[in-house]
Design a protein around this nucleic acid. Structure first.
Lengths: 339, 339
DNA sequence: AACGACACCGCAAACGTTTGCAGTAATGCG
DNA sequence: CGCATTACTGCAAACGTTTGCGGTGTCGTT
């Protein structure tokens, strides 16, 4: 801010006209003579006049800014979501204020306060892992600030939301393994207390059942990291368990499994096929490349932002809340079929 | 924004006092009686009053907001920078407006305009690859908006900057290879028209010369992607070139090299050692794990933001510009030594 | 009784815009 | 010539705060 920034008043003074005339001239109002318009625009250009968005926000009670509450920016998925948000917001002339909760509830509450104080026109939120009280979000809604939840939704809260169909994606990933001839498929599952972990397991089970394959509980193992996968695979192999496929709840787990399987002398995909669930850019650099579910973070960002902007800009914003379910594509690579 | 948000006037009206009194009561001004203060604070609490930051910005001509111009959010390095920025800004009570240029000059210019219009108190910028004209940045400076450049700096422009000592990092990476006994080290270099590409090569050359090793131009190959590395390694091996080490300008290149080397039957690190330059989270998941330079994106974000906030908040901000050079740590893993 | 000190509070201007309304001058028409 | 119309332009209020200054009322002191 500081001094120095030229205002409408500066132009008015210079030209010996009123601020209102300058304002109108700049927006090409018919009341203003061509000559005045020319003079104003010329001077504005020369002085490099930039309308003060802050003053505008105050006047119009519209900040043309949306807030984003995000757990952690550095995750590939979330950063792609931000990228999608930013692109759509930019095209619509909206600014984006980013607040990361760092997966902490207190910080998320503070974020909500900040965004409220900044008078953002709407908020996109993905709740932290530890958020169990939602007063801070209700608070935004009470103040007529529309909310759109993305990825991590809050079941009880009335709002637009956009999520990924994890169950369907897992179902399709597992079916892909079945269709390529696998009969005994291990599932490395995420924590079953998280919705996402349960859904991915359910999709796996659904595909097996539909195909008439046995659901062997000893093949469903809670392991959601590179290291846990290594240990789990070693245990399976030591116990001489037979399996010809692996579906992991995320890519790192899949990669840990893959490496261990290869180290123990099994060929991928010949003897064992592996499928992951994308959370980074890992799939292209493994050997073989990793078949994985693409979660379309960018698209999630664009869709969520479009939903939010629609609610912000429509006269009547009390149409029913909507839940958009994006489907995630299975990208088939070398770890499940020969390319 | 919308309606509904309670203002100081609402409180004043309710209590039959003036807005000024409410304002003073809220900031515990000594002129106000304890009783009034109590009443005001009570009602403010009850109505969940949140000061309107927009009005404040206008009045104080300080937005408590900093702008960030960033090439592409989805890159791991940049997203960690943002994370660092956000954390420091949050602690200082500043908001962060993110603008991504998507590596396009026109978009970067538009970003600068937006931030100017939003009256941000300062801007952190990393220029796009195609930015060659800097009028839009000069323009910010002309309007007394302090700039801090991070990572991608602009040589001619007077401003604070924080960069990584690429030359030194490359030098150390190469020296590590030399110290572990490698004599013929290939360098997969980045584009030599980019500063970063030249510096990384220079560090490599410096280490070789210092050790009295021959600098063989045929071992310096412009290749900065997974695929280019594969091709280059194949060519080298086909030509029966002897080499026992590889230093690549980024991790993906290193990984491409590593895979191809392994496929052709060479052992890593036994016969050939590989070192990369970190641009993701790949180093931990390769087999063997990849020795790489850690660029400390988060730290770069924090340092840059601290420099900017200092310039924003200090009375006298015309102290000389500063260039902070962060050194990047070499993280030794399995691709260069036995662990 | 008069005066100063003190405690407390409100007025009004300002930040940079926008906009309804009113005002002025010039022109057209009968 | 008188009036309406047209073509411009300016005044002032408003958005929500902060803050210098001035005002009021209540004391205590001489």
């Amino acid at each position: 801010m500081k001094s120095g920034l030229v205002t409408i008043k500066d132009i008015a003074r210079e030209l010996n006209i009123s601020a209102s005339t300058v304002s109108r001239a700049l927006k090409n109002h018919p009341d203003i003579s061509e000559e005045t318009k020319r003079a104003v625009n010329e001077l504005a250009q020369k002085l490099n006049y930039q309308p003060n968005a802050v003053a505008l926000s105050l006047k119009q009670r519209r900040s043309h800014t949306i807030g984003v509450i995000i757990p952690e920016i550095v995750h590939y998925f979330f950063s792609s979501v931000i990228s999608g948000i930013e692109d759509v917001a930019y095209d619509a002339g909206f600014n984006v204020i980013i607040c990361q909760s760092n997966e902490r509830y207190e910080r998320e509450v503070a974020n909500a306060r900040t965004l409220l104080a900044s008078r953002v026109d709407g908020v996109l939120v993905s709740v932290s892992k530890h958020t169990e009280d939602f007063q801070h979000l209700h608070n935004l809604q009470d103040n007529n600030i529309p909310l759109v939840f993305y990825d991590r939704i809050v079941p009880g809260l009335e709002a637009d939301q956009v999520i990924i169909d994890d169950l369907d994606a897992s179902y399709r990933a597992t079916r892909h393994l079945i269709e390529t001839g696998r009969k005994r498929i291990v599932h490395f599952a995420g924590p079953q207390k998280l919705l996402i972990g349960r859904q991915r397991k359910d999709g796996y089970v659904k595909a097996l059942e539909e195909a008439g394959l046995e659901v062997d509980p000893s093949l469903i193992i809670e392991a959601d990291s590179f290291e846990k996968a290594r240990l789990a695979v070693m245990r399976l192999l030591n116990e001489k368990k037979k399996f010809d496929g692996v579906f992991a709840t995320n890519d790192l787990t899949a990669i840990g499994a893959m490496q261990t399987i290869q180290k123990r002398g099994f060929k991928i995909p010949d003897e064992i096929a592996v499928v992951g669930f994308s959370d980074g850019r890992f799939s292209g650099i493994t050997d073989p490349t990793l078949t994985s579910v693409d979660q379309h973070g960018y698209e999630m960002g664009t869709v969520a932002t479009e939903m939010l902007l629609r609610r912000i800009t429509s006269e009547n914003s009390d149409y029913p809340y909507e839940t958009r379910v994006l489907n995630a594509d299975l990208i088939v690579r070398g770890s499940s079929v020969f390319l």
